[in-house]
Design a protein around this nucleic acid. Structure first.
Lengths: 348, 348
DNA sequence: AACATCTTGGAAAACGTTGCCCACTCACTC
DNA sequence: GAGTGAGTGGGCAACGTTTTCCAAGATGTT
């Protein structure tokens, strides 16, 4: 009976490299970090030793003194494909650097968010990117005071962290204008009900709802403003649409605050025996992957997630270099992707 | 001009706790790790000091000597909602432990997988869960020799790592039997073409294709076996369906090896002017979130991702405790979810 | 030739935690 | 009363890097 697993061989350390290259560990460290004060000859020698031994720096040990070359990304919901776009933008932008991105999953709710952010700080990460956090401002400021931080998808400016977001106000107007141009007047909206006063003005859902109202007024449709307050979930869309369809005068178009909400709305509409888009138009927000699937073909607002991610990465790298730099806010303009769930309203 | 950011206060360390509690750092460390040799009195005193100071252990420093309490999960494609199910199973199972899950994103291709696995090893993670890796067996064995590892969604047994997978062979049979029961005989399959001989027998896609053929033979439909070899992508589904629809005798049902493949197939079918399921039935695999959306309503094989994740977590924790334990293989049975894309074939 | 400055390389001290080992106390036994 | 052994608590040396110095040599300047 031999043991099935061989004892793992001791890992190559910087000392091994230094011995092999006949130099000091300081010299090796300098080469690793591209630090000042190494001759080209020395650099080559060390590089070769590193390659020959297959040396890889121990990140934990690095973290004790310097950087860990790790960037933590907090993702509230791994299922939303829009977040995947952001992540692609991030990783593309960081691919050529020495930084490694690690994701903290399953952050639904404030407690979970706090757990993940703390875990990332405990692991001495060099920077954090928080995507659509719902934590309090106080918590965000506290995190940002501890480690360089970029907040994505949340409005409101802080002196402690940079932020990148889509212009949700303009995005909502894109939808309203598109529907109004098609001839709709009874355009309703399903929003995510914001319970927390603290976040009220900062969350995208609130901004979208405000943008919807403002755009309706701008089109002279102030009297037609009609909002169902539920949640940004499939269920929320289902319930919201049910509410709206029960109105004395039914809306001819529904602007769902998110694509997943639109999916629920489509359910309720089909159950009510109505056709999309002949009887009623539906538009979403996020332009998630499934919105493009042919059987769905959902008109939606595209947030240029890739660019959002790239900007977040850029800002974070900047801030890691200079923590005193004044905070920046980046707003990106969304675009409308029209597909087959929106059409002129039915003749009266 | 005041500086906008206050200098981050020095972090509380184990030394601070020890001083505050009037004990040694060793004692604090023992309490932290629930190690043997601390009296209840001592434990309470230390716990209180920890709470009063808001101390949190530095994971990097821990990694130098002991564990990092971090588990790395490699996810090849964050967009596949099936992986999200696995992740939920994982995190649920690990929620009550001290372990934190961190995800390595963007691992499409062998190089990227190697980069991520190395990055996780460099960060002294206590264990790794690799989901549907496409790396060579040699690489997997090497990783598993270095750190406790569980491989998910890949068949083939190793002595170095545990594995958890769906029984893809049985899953394929579920689809074939369902379609055959409906009266179909010309049941075609779109597979992911396996280029790598090394992985041929281990990858789910290959097993599904084999299962399809075996099930067809079992139903006496050996002569009707018809496979389009493309890739597990939307494009692959589109191209595969185009090939199949161009056959002299058209199939009446298409078993797509993955839901996303089915999406592409639906595109091609609609373009050919055919209706689903009246003219042709379509089934997928994975039961991804969008399969359930009403406009899609795709018949699909459900893999019990939650259980897969929970099992992977359990096996990993076991292995962290005992690295010499013989490797285990877990196979879970899939189930079929019938929806509206499958129906009896059209009358001849 | 004397002096200042820059460049290059290394020695040694952190960083925060854990693991090993030893010392002490206290009860119990011979 | 000496010996035994379990139960507690602490001292100290790792762990693998980076950082801060300092020294020696090379180069330039008067």
């Amino acid at each position: 009976m031999d043991t099935p697993v061989a004892p793992p061989p001791r890992r190559i350390t910087i000392v091994d490299v230094a011995q092999h290259a006949q130099v000091s560990t300081t010299a090796v460290s300098k080469v690793l970090r591209n630090a000042y004060g190494v001759s080209p000859k020395m650099r080559d020698r060390v590089r070769q030793a590193i390659a020959e031994l297959g040396y890889r720096p121990n990140a934990a040990a690095r973290g004790m003194r310097g950087q860990t070359y790790t960037i933590g990304v907090m993702l509230p919901n791994i299922r939303n494909p829009f977040f995947a776009e952001i992540l692609d933008g991030l990783t593309d932008h960081l691919a050529d650097t020495d930084y490694q991105v690690l994701l903290g999953p399953g952050c639904n709710g404030r407690e979970a968010e706090a757990k993940v952010t703390h875990a990332m700080i405990d692991r001495s990460m060099d920077g954090l990117i928080l995507i659509a956090p719902i934590s309090t401002r106080a918590h965000l400021d506290h995190v940002a005071a501890t480690v360089p931080t970029v907040v994505v998808g949340r409005h409101g400016r802080s002196r402690a962290y940079d932020s990148v977001a889509d212009d949700d106000f303009a995005g909502a107007a894109l939808v309203v204008d598109h529907l109004a141009d098609l001839g709709h007047t009874r355009i309703a909206h399903i929003e995510h009900h914001e319970t927390d006063r603290d976040c009220l003005a900062e969350m995208p859902n609130a901004i979208r709802a405000a943008g919807y109202q403002q755009a309706m007024r701008a089109r002279g449709l102030a009297d037609e403003i009609d909002i169902a307050s539920t949640t940004y979930t499939q269920d929320g869309g289902y319930l919201g649409a049910q509410q709206l369809l029960a109105r004395p005068v039914r809306p001819t178009a529904i602007f769902a605050g998110a694509d997943i909400v639109a999916m629920g709305a489509l359910d309720a509409i089909a159950e009510a025996g109505l056709r999309v888009p002949e009887d009623i138009s539906v538009a979403g927000y996020d332009n998630t992957t499934f919105a493009a699937f042919r059987p769905i073909s959902l008109t939606s607002v595209d947030q240029a997630g890739h660019q959002i991610g790239a900007n977040a990465a850029r800002l974070l790298l900047d801030r890691i270099v200079d923590r005193q730099r004044p905070a920046a806010q980046v707003r990106l303009s969304p675009t409308l992707v029209t597909r087959h769930t929106t059409a002129p309203p039915p003749a009266p």
